Simulated assay, not measured.
Amino acid sequence: MKSPLTQLEQLTVTSKSKSFLKEISSWCFFFSILGFISILLFVVVAVLMGTVYAPMLDLLTQQQGVSNMGTYLMVVYLIVAILYFFPVLYLFKFSRKMKAALATKNDDTLADAFENLKSHFKFIGVMTIIFISLYALLFVFSIFAGSLI
């Protein structure tokens, strides 16, 4: 009798599964292109916030005692663009490698494609955990700060 590990090594991809994977890779390519466009827009807005809109933002925020708001917003937008770049890149690589794997019937390329998909979801998962933790800390801090007033 074969062990479960040996059975998994002989997993075959049917023609129906191949068509699903091809469609998935097309949608992933579409979403990755939209992601790259969004990243470009974030960078453009960051540059605008740091240059063109900086004087206007400084005038508005100096009344509250905050200076260099344009610079702060530029840095925030650039950080968001950098953080968004990696999952979009993983998604793009998955779509390209999946199409190549299906065309060439290469198991190594298929494994590389799934590795990029895993990296995409791992990055998104870690970022989600970080943001949920930050929201929880902010909530606790808000309750504590509210009780002091």
Rank of each mutant, 00 (worst) to 15 (best):
S25W: 02
W27C: 03
I129N: 09
K99N: 13
K93F: 00
G65A: 10
G70R: 07
K122L: 07
G35Y: 07
K118C: 03
S119M: 10
V44C: 03
T6V: 14
V44K: 03
C28F: 13
S3E: 09
I129K: 11
F86M: 05
V47F: 03
L8G: 14
S15K: 09
V45N: 05
F30L: 09
F42H: 01
T14R: 10
F123C: 04
T61Y: 15
L8V: 15
L8E: 15
C28A: 12
V80C: 00
S3V: 08
G70S: 09
G65Y: 05
Q7I: 15
A101L: 04
F42L: 13
T61Q: 06
N116T: 01
Y77V: 03
S25Q: 04
H120N: 04
K105I: 07
V52I: 11
P55D: 12
E23P: 00
N106C: 05
W27L: 11
Y53T: 10
S142K: 11
P87H: 05
V76Y: 11
S119P: 00
L21I: 02
Y77L: 10
L91T: 02
T14W: 09
M49D: 00
V43A: 05
K93G: 00
E115Q: 11
T128A: 15
F144S: 07
A136Q: 04
V43S: 06
A81Q: 06
L5M: 13
S119G: 09
Q62Y: 06
Y53R: 03
L102C: 03
I37K: 02
W27G: 04
G50E: 08
I129F: 10
A54F: 02
K2V: 12
K122T: 10
Q62T: 10
L8C: 13
L110E: 13
T109Y: 01
Y77H: 06
A113H: 05
F29C: 12
K105M: 06
L5R: 12
L21Y: 12
Q63D: 08
V76H: 04
T104Q: 10
L138C: 05
Y135F: 15
A46W: 00
F20M: 13
Y53W: 14
M49R: 02
Q63E: 07
K97Q: 07
S95A: 08
S25Y: 01
L40S: 14
L110Y: 12
Q63V: 11
D58G: 13
A81P: 01
I82R: 01
V140C: 04
V52W: 12
V76F: 08
T71V: 00
F123S: 06
S38G: 14
L89C: 04
